[in-house]
Design a protein around this nucleic acid. Structure first.
Length: 649
RNA sequence: GCUGGCGUAGCUCAAUCGGCAGAGCAGCGGUUUUGUAAACCGCAGGUUGGAGGUUCGAUUCCUCUCGCCAGCUCCA
């Protein structure tokens, strides 16, 4: 029987199915005879397996088109993009060796063995060549060969990294893709041809170790990104610009909030008055809320005997992240990397009854950790920072309720600071862990139950827990959609054991309490950095270090302007005056740059009428009103932003 | 820590091949009394991150050091 006579059955996503001749290309099978495939379709899932559109079908299959809209589609698209870039590099720099070139979150990169770093100049040339290759519209062709043959092939071409990769894989068949004269080892799939990638931009070059190991050779990495339209690429580049514009290191300096100075030391933050004011507001809110939530606030010292950290296990498990101990009299003292031992010692200062539990100790505790110089980053990664820390001690039967309460509390805090999207992760028992399997199972169960009880969607990270217990991590998403991990809720089986924590139960016997570490904002420094970027420095009224600035038009309004400032301050508003001998346009400009929420212009008219002309941040004209009305405006803003706040008694 | 780039006035940035270190803004003094994003004139401001070296001469070249920035997990 002639093979052409054989037909196979294909099923489409809409449930319809049709018969096509065997060996029909997957892409053609998707449309049926006479149909033409939409350009958005880049590849196709054949029985779930991502496949080139050109691949000949051999058996019955369900087909599903892959477009850029899906994460898989983006991966295919950018993976093809990086091959195009690699071709351009090989054409311009034939001695460059191909290492790896995957798609990543928002683009792609390719690592090359090359004798020197690529310069911005090189990138420009490479990008120009990339455009030529796109225009040439070379088809991506797949071929398969036995692994040994592929090894020989790449060895002859001097591609030692490809040989290494091939030697490390188990499959006996290797797949190669070619476009034009370029051939690369690749699993695929790819878009049909180089012309299908519309807009590519090379972003930066950087060094990267072969297989991420610093003992290996340094490769030269080129990052890039690509999109199906120039408009989408431009939008992405605009977003990168926006991220730069919001950089908290830049805004922190411009708005005179914080500095990190060489003379002080890397990773150590100076809070200037305006930054300190915002911190004070955050901390005041934090303390109020904790007292309402049934926490007791404590303080602990910045150093303690090294022995304490031996008991806690930090010397064994955390030494790499600790400053070296200092010798004082006959003993050694350690700058604190964590607050927990102190809270534990407060717990231990009395005998505790089951009736006392839960006990919740909270502290804005400043800790010092030795971070390697290469990882320091503005406020986001520092060496001295203040954790909004708390340790809860409870009975096993209270665990789930306590976790639920902490969850509610966390979301309330984060929402108040303007975050409304969250990603929640539960990390379970890692291989090396303390505590019995059933303790872990029980505690993990309690975490999951608390999340489910609150209807919080979450993902499980198997084996990602800390050695001392399971945890919940919460990431917030900022206005640009970037995720930041701040909150964490961790069960600890280790410290109650090490410190011999106990409470007396109903039965008169000693029992071990369960301990929960939790931080809502994480570190005040880091959270502040995130807040600066989230708000682009334009803090909402309740957090703005200056809520209103009074701008006088001439010297004649000096006294009146001062009186307005006094009235606002008397009502608890943070107001200041700009009475300088300058034009009002200049004063407005400066107030705008300082991102003051309300500008109150006072001239002859306002002085006569006992009013101020209110200009909102970014130009809104709110008209003339009395200072009392401005106070109401500010109070309404504050009340709206902090619904959790109870009126003071 | 490793690789690469960078470090000049308070800030943002110039300075050709190794040849007297400069501008704008900010600051200070004066003029101007001003209506919603920059009035005008003038003055002052520096051990070019630090130490050493090469040179008649170093911001520039070399070595060391401190700091900053990017990258260093995402499997062809």
């Amino acid at each position: 029987m002639a093979s052409g006579a054989r037909h196979i059955q294909v099923t489409l996503p809409d449930g319809t199915s049709r018969r096509v001749p065997e060996a029909t290309a997957a892409g053609d099978a998707l449309t049926g005879p006479g149909g033409s495939l939409p350009r958005e379709v880049l590849a196709v899932r054949v029985n779930g397996v991502p496949t080139d559109l050109a691949t000949a079908l051999r058996e019955d299959a369900s087909l599903e088109p892959i477009t850029f809209e899906s994460p898989l589609g983006k991966e295919v698209y950018r993976h093809s993009s990086t091959h195009i870039m690699a071709q351009a590099v090989k054409e311009l720099f034939p001695s460059a060796q191909l290492a790896i070139g995957p798609a990543i979150e928002e683009g792609f990169y390719y690592d090359f063995g090359f004798e020197r770093p690529f310069t911005p100049d090189d990138l420009e040339k490479i990008e120009a060549r990339v455009h030529d290759i796109q225009k040439a519209n070379h088809p991506f062709k797949r071929m398969e060969m036995p692994r040994q043959e592929a090894i020989r092939f790449f060895r002859e071409r001097g591609e030692k990294y490809k040989v290494e990769i091939l030697e490390s894989i188990n499959d006996e068949t290797a797949s190669l893709y070619s476009q034009g004269d370029f051939i690369d080892l690749c699993r695929g799939p790819h878009v049909p041809s180089t012309g299908r990638v519309a807009a590519i931009k090379l972003l930066s070059g950087a060094g990267a170790y072969w297989r991420g190991d610093e003992r290996n050779a340094m490769l030269q990495r080129i990052y890039g990104t690509s999109f199906p339209t120039q408009a989408a690429l431009d939008a992405h580049l605009a977003k990168l610009e926006e991220i730069k514009r919001r950089d908290h290191r830049k805004l922190g300096k411009e708005l005179d909030l914080i500095t990190i100075q060489d003379e002080i030391g890397p990773g150590l933050v100076l809070w200037h008055p305006k930054g300190a004011m915002i911190r004070l507001l955050i901390e005041n809110f934090w303390r109020e809320q904790h007292l309402q939530a049934g926490y007791e606030l404590v303080y602990s010292p910045h150093v303690a005997r090294l022995d304490l950290w031996k008991t806690s296990g930090h010397v064994d498990y955390y030494r790499d992240n600790m400053f070296v101990p200092m010798k004082v009299e006959a003993s050694e003292y350690q700058l604190k990397p964590m607050n927990c031992p102190f809270h534990i010692m407060i717990y231990k200062s009395h005998l505790r009854s089951y009736r006392d539990l839960p006990i919740r100790y909270g502290e804005l505790g400043t800790v010092y950790r030795y971070e390697r110089t290469g990882v320091l980053h503005g406020l986001l990664r520092v060496r001295g920072f203040t954790q909004d820390d708390a340790h809860l001690f409870c009975r096993p039967d209270q665990l789930e309720t306590e976790v639920s309460r902490v969850l509610d509390f966390t979301f309330l805090m984060l929402r108040t600071f303007g975050f409304s999207e969250f990603e929640v992760f539960v990390s379970t028992k890692p291989e090396k862990a303390v505590g019995s399997a059933e303790n872990w199972a029980q505690a993990t169960q309690a975490l999951v139950a608390a999340l489910n009880g609150r209807g919080v969607r979450h993902q499980i990270d198997p084996g990602e827990g800390v050695f001392y217990g399971p945890k919940i991590d919460i990431k917030i998403k900022d206005v640009l959609g970037r995720a930041w991990q701040c909150s964490t809720i961790q069960i600890d089986f280790n410290n109650p054991e090490r410190f011999g924590l106990a409470y007396t139960g109903e039965d008169g016997k000693a029992h071990q309490p369960i301990m929960i570490h939790r931080a809502l904002l994480g570190s005040i420094e880091r959270f502040f950095g995130i807040l600066i970027e989230h708000y682009a420095g334009a803090f909402p009224t309740w957090l703005a270090p200056v809520q209103a600035r009074v701008l006088s038009i001439t010297d004649k309004q000096r006294e009146y302007a001062e009186a307005v400032v006094g009235q606002l301050r008397g009502a608890g508003c943070r107001a200041e005056g700009d009475l300088r001998n300058e034009k009002v346009g200049f004063k407005v400009r400066e107030a705008e740059k300082a991102k003051v929420p309300y500008m109150l212009v006072v001239g002859e008219r306002e002085m006569q009428g006992g009013t101020v002309s209110v200009r909102g941040r970014s130009g809104a004209d709110l008209g003339a009103m009395s200072p009392a009305a401005v106070i109401d405006l500010i109070r309404a803003d504050v009340a709206k932003a902090t619904p959790a706040r109870q009126p003071a008694p």
